[in-house]
Structure formats: structure tokens, C-alpha cells
Amino acid sequence: MTRRPAAAQTALGPMMIAAAEQYEPPGRRLIDDGLAIGLLPVSLRAAVRACRWPAVRRWMIAASDKRAPGIWGAVLCRKRYADDQATEAFQAGITQVVVLGAGLDTRACRLTPSGGRAYELDLPANVEDKRQRLQTLSGAVPEHVRLIGVDFEIDDLGGVLAEHGFQTGRPVVFVWEAVTQYLTEEGVRATLAFLSQAAAGSRLLFTYVLRDFLDGGGHGATALYEEFVVKRRLWRFGLAPGEVSGLLASYGWVEREQVGAAEYQARYLEPAGRELPVSDLERFVYAEKR
């Protein structure tokens, strides 16, 4: 498969967590994603299948959290939140979804309503890799999904989407999960400038990493800080929670909700009877277009 740059290779970890979650009993499972394991490399599938044994799942969670406390729970909960919010948007009548930086995520394949259209934008190497994995898994990319290679730092996202049939005059739900930290501020603002053109009633779901973590670590995640911020310099953009509303307003969006570790515990983990730590390094935002 196509060799992928460093930032693109980070797609495997979250999907491995999603795939392992499928071995939790239905009443405790946070997300339902039967496609996840099939998109993983063969070398990782055996490790995931071993998670059918609870002791192995517990060991993998502990190993993950040793490197970055609460990261396993944070990935599961943010995916659940995005699934819930995207589903709510579809139930409200929105039939277009644009996934910005889709990686190997399966949301567009799983949740897009009948008659809807999904557009997945990612680095060209990621797109080609995913196209090959979907073809191997299912024989073809689903008809309602368009896989589009872009560079968020330089490409005209509106022009690229228009070439693939995106209808700018209709509301859309944008999902921008675990991407902004990999961009420069200029790249984030360029994407927001594109999003400012969305039709009224559109919805935006995006995550961001806390600025104070990028500025000096902390939050009990020294290893994560050293790897992603200091050594590999992959994480470059962050926000403080109080900055979000003003940033969005300048591009025509209204912040409706921010969620993080505390909300995830109350909404998802406690009702499922799960005792799972959740990192507070990242927050999810739901906004609507004026």
C-alpha cells in the first residue's frame, strides 16, 4: 500500500481501540463499529481478536493508559459523541456529511442515511490506503461515499468538493475529529474560512487539544507530550476553552456545546457501568451555522 507520512500513520491507533471495543457486551459497549477490524492491517487484527478475552482488553487499556493516562477512554467517548451528534443531524433532515481528516474512520459508511452522500477528505496517501482497504474488505468503496485527497494547508476545499458533487446550498454536517492539532494555525483558519461558506443550519463537530498542554505538557501525559509535541512535532495547534466561541463567531458559527472528560463520564461511562479513565487533553465542540 502507499507509504504514508507520519501524521497520516496515526489513524491506526483509534481504529484499533474502536475494533477492540466490539468485544464488550452490548450493554457496556460505547460504540458499534463492525467495520473497524476489517480496515486494520492483518498484523494488528490478531491483537484485536485477542481482546475477546476480558483480561487481554484490560491489559491493553492499561498499557495504553500508561503512555497517556485516559487516552483509551477518550478515544472511545469522542467517537461515541461524534456518532450521536451526526445521527441527530441526519434525523433532523441533513443528508450531506463531510468528514475532514477521515483517516480509517467508518462513520460515513455506517451512519449516512439512505439517499445521503458522504465526502471524506484526507491526505492523498491516507485516501489511497483507505480505498484499497475498503476494496479488499467489501469489494468497493460504498456508492454513497466519495474519498477525496487534499492538503488542508494549501488546497481549496470548496473547489475540490464541488468537483465531486457537493451541494453548497444545502445544510451539511462537518465532522473534524482529532485533526486540528496536526495543522498550523493558518491551516485551521483556512479550513474555517471554507466552513464559513456553509449553508445556514449546517452543523460542525470538531475536536481540539488544550493549548496549555502544547505549551508545556502536564495532565499526566509526559510521554505523549515528548513524542507528539517535542520529538515528532506533529501537534502544533491548540485552544483554550474560552477561545472557541469567539473563533467560531468570526467565521459565522455559533457554539452550542463543548464536552470533555466530565461530560463523557456522565453521559456514557456511568450509564454503561464502566470504570474507565478519560483524558482531559482534548475537547469536542458542536456548533451551528448562522
Rank of each mutant, 00 (worst) to 15 (best):
M1G: 11
R4G: 00
M15H: 09
A18P: 00
E21R: 01
Y23T: 03
Y23D: 06
R29S: 03
L30C: 04
L30Y: 04
I31D: 02
D32V: 11
A36V: 04
I37Q: 08
L39S: 07
L39Y: 08
L39A: 07
L39M: 10
L40M: 06
L40C: 05
S43I: 10
A47L: 14
R49F: 11
A50K: 02
R52W: 13
A55Y: 00
M60Y: 12
I61H: 06
A63E: 13
S64M: 14
G70W: 13
V75E: 04
R78W: 07
Q85Y: 03
T87I: 06
E88N: 03
F90P: 02
I94K: 03
V97A: 10
D105P: 04
R107L: 14
R107S: 06
R107N: 05
A108V: 14
A108D: 03
C109F: 13
G115S: 08
G115A: 09
Y119I: 06
Y119K: 05
E120W: 09
P124T: 12
P124C: 11
P124N: 12
N126V: 15
K130Q: 10
Q132V: 10
S138N: 10
V141A: 05
H144M: 05
H144L: 06
R146V: 09
D151C: 09
D151Y: 08
E153H: 11
I154W: 10
I154L: 09
D156A: 09
G169H: 15
G169I: 06
R170L: 15
P171I: 11
V172Y: 03
A178L: 06
V179H: 02
T180W: 01
T184W: 02
T184D: 05
E185T: 07
V188E: 04
R189F: 08
R189H: 09
T191Q: 03
L195C: 04
L204R: 04
L204P: 04
L204D: 03
F206H: 11
R211W: 04
D212E: 15
L214Y: 08
G216T: 09
G217M: 07
G218F: 06
H219P: 00
H219Y: 15
T222N: 02
L224V: 07
E226P: 00
F228M: 12
K231H: 11
R232V: 00
R232T: 01
R233T: 02
R236Q: 13
L239W: 04
A240R: 14
A240P: 00
A240K: 10
E243L: 02
E243T: 04
E243N: 01
V244W: 05
S245C: 07
G246P: 05
Q258W: 08
G260C: 12
G260L: 12
E263R: 14
E270K: 14
A272Y: 08
R274F: 01
R274N: 13
E275R: 13
V278G: 05
D280S: 14
L281C: 06
R283D: 00
F284K: 00
R290Y: 01
